[in-house]
């Protein structure tokens, strides 16, 4: 059995035929070549696969591609406008909110969702809202700084 889905990814409308058991994260990586969405744990815990699904930061490893029919998805590749990085990406760069970078795409997308929800959140709010995104390198200090700065930059735009 295959299913035809039609959805918007990073502003581009696409139509594709998928197997029901294909996970959204595998669809993005294998079928759309959008490999910025990472697979960290594959057990819904680490958040490396986070994408914006109709503006909500969700884990693409816990959703079937078939369920994305009609949805609008934004991955890390869809954030920069031309050569200009998204304010949240700039903040992660400026505050060195990463070390190996594996968790970063998911962190950035969750951070954008946090900023849209909370405006200019305090550090406690940022830490609480980042619970679903794990980083094994940084100890989170610079990630929290980056999210805080990125959220403030976004609220100015």
């Amino acid at each position: 059995m295959t299913i035809t889905i039609s959805l918007t990814i990073n502003g581009r409308h696409i139509k594709h035929t998928v197997d029901p058991a294909l996970l959204l994260v595998d669809f993005l990586r294998e079928n759309c070549q959008l490999t910025g969405t990472h697979v960290g744990c594959d057990t819904s815990q680490c958040g490396a696969c986070t994408v914006l699904f109709d503006d909500q930061a969700i884990k693409a490893c816990t959703l079937f591609a078939a369920q994305a029919d009609g949805a609008s998805i934004v991955t890390i590749e869809g954030l920069a406008q031309d050569d200009e990085l998204h304010p949240m990406q700039k903040a992660f760069q400026a505050h060195h909110g990463l070390q190996c970078g594996f968790c970063t795409p998911g962190m950035v997308l969750t951070a954008i969702d946090i900023a849209r929800t909370h405006g200019a959140p305090d550090d406690a709010t940022i830490r609480r809202e980042l619970e679903g995104n794990l980083c094994r390198c940084t100890g989170y200090q610079n990630i929290v700084k980056a999210v805080s700065a990125g959220a403030r930059a976004m609220s100015k735009d």
């Binding site: 986070t50 909500q56 816990t62 959703l63 619970e131 679903g132």
Partner: peptide, 9 residues
Amino acid sequence: IGDRAVRYR
């Protein structure tokens, strides 16, 4: 419940 991403779904 869970985390932010879990609560959305």
